[in-house]
Design a binder for these strands. Structure first.
Length: 580
RNA sequence: GUCCCUGUAGUUCAAUGGAUAGAACAAGGGAUUCCUAAUCCCUAAAUCUAGGUUCGAUUCCUAGCGGGGACACCA
């Protein structure tokens, strides 16, 4: 085998096709790259196209005439079966018989690895996400972060990275002091004991605390005192802090368990706060870190990044002082190549400040802020402070009630356990899909009605498509066992079948794009389109009822669709159901 | 005031600078002796404004208008 053969063998088939077109043109002394090729607006026009404008310009020719010339000169070969010129475009037609055969073999051979690439093989990347604050409610805004972060962890793994999934728990700071103050002054022990979910109870307490404090200077002073005590390890307040913190952490764990999300490492603000204060003398040696108005600040005005307060004038710590030691610690412990922070866009300025501070300290490492826009409600911005939130728990419960009812109706014979498991999976699919379907840069205005919808562009649609597909396989085992025909891919002739093949070809490219943009919505749209085309196929063409030769190739197609659906849904964290 | 994000059918979202701007929901019409109708098919419906760059702009640049957000002691 020559080197060229070897690389052709390893090369995913979609790249192979483009390479062949590039070579065909090279023979005509025309240099293009794979990225020059576009997709025609409709399949009848071709499968791939080369716009001839730029080449025509260089050759000082009319683009349409050039396309015509090229169409006449080039003899199709390999996976290209035909080509023709339409106006200024040179369009190529794929030999679906051969493409399908090779593609299905590739997908079945690579299985769960189909779509993976080695673009950044061996790179060590930490992705920090979720970062919930204890003593606050876990709302749907937090859910978006978790869904994006988890999907990115999977995408980076698919691109050959070693990924460390990190969580950074906000277990210190003003919000803690406020909640503890409220618990001490307004809540009696029996109320706490009565609460069935103490984590949620605590979240509500925070909102009530903020309202109770209001503009009352006296109360603000009392809260500041508690913050001081916390930082000075006052035993009584520390005990209350630890006790209540556990409530929140248990609640978060329950949520992660439901979402089927795991973290490799947990960091805690309370610990980084100590580390930050410890390194304060070292920090003060830098010119840009200085005292100002009684506080300690990082003065970044020179860089158009304003000022970041690190230590309040009363000596207590702010968030910035905690992120600095943490960033350093991460790289040291895990020997990272890249550190990624998944945090909403409102903190873009803050992260620029942190990255700049680290840079000025001579810490020259690759840190990326993956920004996304926040989730708001129709009634305005979501805020634990004001209590204008929709919690994860309430959305989940509402969705669950609806889905359980629906599932019971559809499957009266199913045992309760099966209904419960399926409903849980459907709800997770609906919620996660809802959080991932929009581009990162789009603000999501959360609408409970929309979240409960299971039709159309939703997670359950994907699950339903998979279940139908799976059901064909289940039925086929009973009705057509033992059929043995030679596969003839010429039987894959319908437009919708070709469309599906084309979709499957594109999958590896989609994974790469998702990684490059850090935006899972790209994958969401792709998987949805695949499911949609499958459903069209399902209605249009029979499988089990088809004549054996046709049935055989359709099964090959379905196996590949099933694999890609599985791979994509796994990355997105959308649970797969064999029946629903 | 400065900076960041954003403006596409009634609504929520798509569209590496390319050919006829795609979906979903909502609206109206249709499909179930056939592999799950949580599905499918059909109809109607959109690029904020003005310039510029380009063979070609929803996409890039400039200005304006609209929406959201961040800018010293919340995280």
């Amino acid at each position: 085998m020559t080197d060229a053969d070897k690389s052709a063998f390893i090369m995913p088939i979609n790249e192979k096709i483009k390479k062949q077109i590039v070579n065909l043109l090279a023979k005509q002394k025309i240099k293009i790259i794979a990225e020059d090729l576009t997709i025609p607006p409709s399949p009848e026009m071709g499968d791939l196209a080369l716009p001839c404008f730029e080449i025509a310009k260089i050759q000082k020719k009319n683009p349409a005439e050039l396309a015509e010339e090229l169409a006449a000169q080039i003899t199709p070969s390999g996976l290209i079966i035909n080509l023709k010129n339409i106006g200024p475009y040179l369009n190529f037609f794929l030999d679906y018989t051969r493409v399908a055969e090779q593609l299905f073999k590739e997908i079945q051979k690579k299985a769960e690895k189909y779509g993976q690439n080695k673009q950044v093989k061996g790179q060590k990347v930490m992705i920090e996400y979720s970062q919930p604050n204890t003593h606050k409610e876990f709302h749907v805004g937090h859910l978006r972060n978790v869904c994006i972060g988890n999907a990115l962890v999977n995408v980076y793994k698919n691109c050959g990275c070693k990924v460390v999934a990190a969580n950074y728990i906000g277990d210190s700071g003003a919000h803690i002091a406020k909640t503890l103050w409220y618990l001490q002054n307004f809540v009696n022990q029996t109320d706490i004991a009565k609460a069935d979910n103490q984590g949620e109870f605590l979240g509500r307490a925070y909102t009530q605390a903020v309202a109770a404090i209001g503009d009352n200077q006296d109360r603000k002073y009392q809260v500041a005192e508690i913050l001081q005590k916390l930082e000075n390890n006052d035993p009584k307040i520390i005990k209350l802090w630890q006790q209540t913190k556990k409530w929140s952490l248990d609640h978060f764990q329950e949520i992660y368990r439901e979402l089927k999300i795991n973290f490799d490492v947990y960091y805690y603000e309370s610990e980084e706060e100590k580390a930050g204060k410890k390194m304060l003398p070292k920090l003060l040696k830098y010119d840009f870190i200085k005292k100002s108005q009684g506080a300690i600040i990082a003065d970044l005005q020179k860089y158009d990044l304003g000022v970041l307060v690190l230590i309040r004038k009363d000596g207590t710590a702010l968030y910035g002082i905690k992120d600095i030691p943490l960033a350093i610690k991460k790289f040291k412990k895990y020997k990272l190549d890249t550190s990624i922070y998944v945090i909403d866009n409102r903190q873009a300025q803050y992260l620029k400040q942190i990255f700049k501070i680290l840079e000025l300290m001579g810490f020259d490492k690759k840190m990326i802020h993956v920004t996304y826009e926040f989730v708001q409600l129709k009634s305005g911005i979501m805020s634990s402070r004001t209590g204008n939130v929709v919690t994860y728990e309430e959305v989940k419960q509402a969705a669950l009630n609806k889905v359980i009812k629906e599932t019971k109706q559809r499957h009266p014979a199913w045992p309760a356990e099966k209904i419960s498991l399926a409903s849980q999976a459907i709800v997770m699919a609906a919620l996660k899909f809802g959080m991932l379907k929009s581009n990162n840069n789009k603000v999501i205005t959360f609408d409970i009605e929309e979240a409960l919808d299971v039709n159309g562009f939703t997670g359950p649609y994907l699950q339903y498509s998979y279940a139908r597909l799976n059901s064909i396989f289940v039925k086929s085992r009973k009705t057509c066992a033992g059929i043995d025909v030679k596969l003839d891919y010429k039987n894959l002739a319908a437009t919708i079948e070709k469309e599906l093949v084309k979709n499957l070809l594109k999958y590896p490219q989609i994974i790469l794009e998702t990684k490059q943009t850090n935006d899972p919505s790209i994958l969401v749209h792709y998987i949805y389109k695949l499911a949609q085309d499958f459903n069209a196929f399902y209605h249009e063409l029979p499988v089990i009822q088809a004549e054996p030769a046709v049935m055989a190739v359709r099964f090959e197609l379905l196996k590949s669709i099933k694999q890609v659906l599985t791979n994509g849904m796994n990355i997105l964290g959308i649970p797969i159901l064999k029946e629903m």
